[in-house]
Design a protein around this nucleic acid. Structure first.
Length: 559
RNA sequence: UGCCCGGUGGUGUAAUGGUAACACACCGGCCUUUGGAGCCGAGGUUCGAGGUUCAAAUCCUCGCCGGGCAGCCA
């Protein structure tokens, strides 16, 4: 089976199949359970699961849990939830590197017996010194030529807990003069007296990633081990292990990890944001984590589409976050029901509308999807419109409401502003407008046109809600770009979260389910936050609508 | 100054020796009961210099620039 997509990875796979190197395709996604998954992981998940599906193969989920000091069960559960949410299924193939600890141990013994590994008692500092530098070869450890029997005994004793942390390690015996530092007798096992979230206290020696990873892939029959660029230099080491052991040889292919503008993507830095209280948690809607995006209202379909669209290559690159937002808008435009909500309310009294009258007006739920149907919205004498939709002294480019000007209220009537009411400070507190009864529904029988259509809610009928507006978490396209001392946290955007507590929502928004995303007409997409309680819904702005007027305003400020 | 990898519009990916394509962004226009959506159009000669060839983004050489590697992290 072939794929019609032609990135360099699929090309290699096509070729391997053609040449008969592998009969079936088997990939894997191998996260370390030491943090939450982010959009960069999504790229790897989509790659591995999509490839497996395209070629009629399988993709395993395997947790790389070789370091008990950093890994936790909480992360395992979160990772599983995120992958499922993204839309992928590893079926019964949920594996752990720790499942193979015994096999790995046996393989290490095999290597010792072959004279290819030895127990070394150099301290970590000494190992570093002996390793040499980028330009100078290293020198051999005095323990390098220990008799095999002694290595066997010592390694067993390491496992049996006879030695404290750091006392000795098992090292591969390769080449201390190799120009590739990974080949200078790398560590395979270290002593760590820490219980493991799965194996408990069964082990006090743990394999390093470099030793474990390739063998785990081999054991699972993985054909293509897709990983990120920084492991390129390790490939010769992985190949060496596999060859010494004489076991199934997966092909490793490296690709460039995803970077996004205005985003940090390392787990270390994300952890720092969480632990330092710069955000409210791993699932803070400003985080690039999958759980953050879920809470923000990003549809998984949009993330998948994004991951497929950015392509895969070896060039290190930074993708514009607007591309992600584009796919979010594209998906939500098709699926999200429209509602009207006024974020910054300005009171409008329709002076010629009867005092106690209420009309039910019809509104379309989603113009992109007629099956979404229609709903009724109440209209009455006093309404709210958006403050930004009125300008007392309008600039030429502004064609919304202004003194003496007529606009349309969406699905309702044409109104004309006849009076501007101000308080003693001169701030506008209320508008008086006259409506034209003949324009009910939004069209004038005489054919006259208005330039703008405004969203609104009826004051008497609306419900109050809280809205969270988000901006990029960082003010710089590259958050790591810091001048002078300090670090990326100095680039945090102080306005990344703005809370509006006095928003007026159309009545249908009083009873909503967490996770639902609506389009608030003319404003953007908003997702019901799980923390919504009682009768005051909380909405997270997923993404704004593209806004021509906003662009014009910015341009005018620049001039 | 060792080894490995990479350089195509603003951004990201295509083009696999034969007219540099697509998406996003940007700019201009059309349309519009969302300044949304949709539609149409403009913008690059492929890091540089040589070479091979009828023909080079693609092959070769030499540069230049960027990234990774000296954890008992992954």
């Amino acid at each position: 089976m072939k794929s019609d997509k032609t990135d360099f990875i699929r090309e290699i796979i096509n070729n391997d199949l053609k040449e008969g190197r592998y009969k079936k395709i088997h990939t894997r996604f191998p996260p370390e359970p030491n943090g939450y998954l982010h959009i960069g992981h999504a790229k790897a998940i989509c790659l591995n699961f999509d490839i497996a599906e395209e070629y009629g193969g399988k993709c395993n989920l395997r947790f790389d849990d070789t370091n008990p000091t950093k890994e936790e069960l909480e992360y395992v559960d979160a990772i599983k939830q995120d992958i499922k949410w993204l839309g992928y299924d590893w079926e019964e193939r949920e594996y752990y590197a720790s499942d193979y600890f015994e096999k790995l141990y046996d393989m290490a013994v095999d290597l010792i017996k072959k004279g290819k590994a030895y127990v070394c008692e150099l301290s970590p500092e000494q190992i570093r010194e002996y390793r040499g530098t980028l330009t100078e070869p290293g020198k051999e450890s005095p323990y390098r030529n220990r008799p095999i029997e002694e290595n066997l005994r010592l390694f067993k004793e390491m496992r049996d807990g006879k030695y404290p942390d750091g006392a000795m390690v098992l090292r591969a015996k390769i080449d201390m003069a190799s120009p590739n530092l990974n080949m200078r007798d790398p560590v395979m096992y270290r002593i760590v007296h820490t219980s493991h979230h799965r194996t408990g206290d069964k082990w006090c020696i743990y394999p390093t990633y470099d030793w474990a990873h390739g063998q785990c892939d081999s054991i699972e029959g993985i054909t293509h081990s897709i990983c990120t660029l920084e492991f390129q230099d390790h490939r010769p080491l992985y190949d060496w292990f596999i060859e010494q052991l004489g076991i199934h040889h997966p092909r490793q292919i490296e690709f460039a990890r995803l970077n996004l503008t205005y985003t940090v993507m390392s787990k270390r830095r994300l952890l720092e944001l969480v632990e330092g209280g710069y955000v409210q948690g791993w699932d803070d809607p400003r985080m690039p984590t999958l759980s953050g995006m879920r809470r923000r209202g990003y549809p998984p379909a949009a993330i998948r589409k994004f991951c497929r669209n950015i392509g895969v290559a070896k060039t290190e690159s930074v993708v514009d976050i607007e591309l992600l937002e584009h796919f979010v808008r594209e998906e939500l435009n098709k699926t999200a029901e429209r509602r009207m909500a006024v974020l910054n309310p300005l009171k409008v009294v329709i002076i010629n509308y009867p005092e106690d009258k209420t009309e039910e007006l019809e509104a379309i739920n989603n113009p992109e999807d007629t099956s979404a149907g229609i709903r009724k919205i109440p209209f009455s004498k006093v309404i709210y419109i958006e403050k930004d939709d009125f300008m007392e002294n309008p600039v030429p480019e502004f064609y919304r409401l202004a003194p003496g000007r007529e606009v349309r209220l969406r699905y309702a009537y044409f109104i004309k502003c006849v009076d501007v009411i101000k308080d003693k400070n001169g701030d506008i507190v209320e508008l008086h407008c006259a409506y034209d009864p003949a324009t009910k529904g939004g069209n004038a029988p005489d054919g006259r046109k208005v330039k703008a259509t405004l969203h609104w809610v009826s004051a008497k009928h609306c419900t109050i809600g809280e809205v969270h507006l988000y901006e990029h978490l960082f003010i710089k396209e590259d958050p790591l770009d810091t001048s002078g001392p300090g670090d990326f946290k100095d680039n945090i955007n102080p306005n990344s979260l703005r809370i509006l507590k006095n928003c007026r929502l159309e009545p249908s928004l009083s009873d909503v389910k967490a996770g639902t995303v609506f389009q608030f007409e003319r404003l953007g997409y908003f997702c019901v936050d799980p923390d919504t309680k009682g009768n005051c819904p909380v909405f997270n702005r997923t993404v704004s609508l593209k806004d021509e007027w906003e662009k014009i305003k910015k341009r005018k400020i620049k001039e």
